[in-house]
Design a protein around this nucleic acid. Structure first.
Lengths: 221, 221
DNA sequence: CCGATGCTAAGTGTCAACACTTTGGCGAAA
DNA sequence: TTTCGCCAAAGTGTTGACACTTAGCATCGG
């Protein structure tokens, strides 16, 4: 982590702020202070401003003109929104991957899966990433891997995993990969959607009983 | 349109640059010059920088660290990417709208449709926007109405409408609205997806024969 | 005692200047 | 003549200071 790209401060600051978000080390309340961060990183406010702007673009921070920036509410309701979005987009991603990935890439993906399954260490996110890359649709890949990725990561470290998922996820992944290998786009899409919808339902159950970590009001506009 | 919000220069500059993009008045090549724009608008480079950054976030401009920013390639291949993304997301949007919109909102939407159909003037985009708002999923609404909206608008003014669409679009819209009215989420999703997939196929046919306006290479990564 | 009004400090938006990188063209060597 | 490396000019990244807005607090009137 020490040898980041030496390009542009903005990127470095972006990741530093993100690391702070992940470890929960941001000022007691959810507010983000530009000058405080600038001093903390020994840079000017410009890069910090831009980094915050990018974090806003990725939905991690909410900001209105002269109001202070606040880190996004990670309410269950918000996560349901995100999972519904993922359900549709990752479904399409799987379909396209089944139709367009090269045979070599599919085999490599299967190998990676077997390794991960054997050691039980690899996070399942990697498979979703690879499928998105295999979709050949840059717009979809960017949405899943560049935009939503950070939000998901933040949610996972803040709220922990969704209960009772990890067991079933593995077999679901296997089925999806088989569908891709068989070049069955429709099936791959259905399986991927069901895979994510299951997590969504777990979240909806959570929402039914009580808010887990934070209040569940909208962040909305 | 003259009475914009008087908030923050960045927003004004953002829209001014976007208007320039729409009318094709950007320096001969596709490059975007910060200082030139700053002088043109009589503002400093800061706001222009941030506005460009936001345009980059919305995919209208591509930029790497020290390289000049360039306006995005509006190739047919890129548009296919976007339409595939829309197919999945707007499908989900229609499904959620069918399940969650209030009866009053649905009736109002039907009224708007009838008006538009009578005068034949309103752009169909408005219906998609309203359905996205009706989905109750802020993340999806934002993606469709805040991010993709500008790209679509830019493409339409640059490349014109997709041939042979406007006739069939109207009846397709009507079917989708009926499905929503009937609270049939599955049907609404299928119809919406078919509606957009049809446009996608028209684009793919275009891609098959010749690139219409601009070369069709990837804007990649 | 409680609520509204004006004030002060903190924070954000904007600006102009400085530092670094790229780009395109010129000249020297092969 | 062609190619490689250097150099100036243009453009982007970064900085610190200034202008404006908001949030919290004290004071005042009810």
């Amino acid at each position: 982590m020490s040898e980041r790209e030496q390009t542009t401060l903005v990127n470095q600051v972006f990741h530093k702020i993100f690391d702070l978000l992940l470890s929960g080390q941001l000022p007691t309340n959810g507010v983000v202070n530009e000058v405080a961060l600038a001093e903390r990183f020994n840079v000017s406010r410009g890069p910090v401003r831009e980094a915050i702007s990018q974090l806003q673009g990725r939905g991690l921070i909410v900001k209105k003109p002269y109001m202070r920036a606040r880190i996004v509410e990670l309410s269950v309701a918000n996560m349901i929104d995100i999972f519904q979005l993922r359900e549709s987009v990752e479904g399409m991603s799987a379909r396209l991957a089944a139709e367009r990935m090269s045979d070599a890439a599919i085999d490599e993906l299967l190998d990676v899966y077997h390794e991960a399954h054997a050691t039980q260490s690899k996070p399942p996110l990697d498979m979703h990433t690879r499928i998105a890359e295999g979709s050949g649709n840059e717009r979809i890949r960017s949405l899943l891997c560049d935009e939503l990725y950070y939000l998901l990561q933040l949610y996972r470290t803040r709220s922990g995993e969704i209960p009772g998922r990890r067991n079933t996820a593995s077999t679901e992944h296997w089925q999806i990969l088989r569908a891709i290998k068989a070049r069955d786009g429709q099936l791959a899409e259905s399986l991927m959607r069901a895979h994510i919808a299951q997590a969504t339902h777990a979240l909806q159950d959570l929402l039914g009983q009580d808010a887990p970590l934070q209040p569940a009001h909208q962040y909305g506009h």
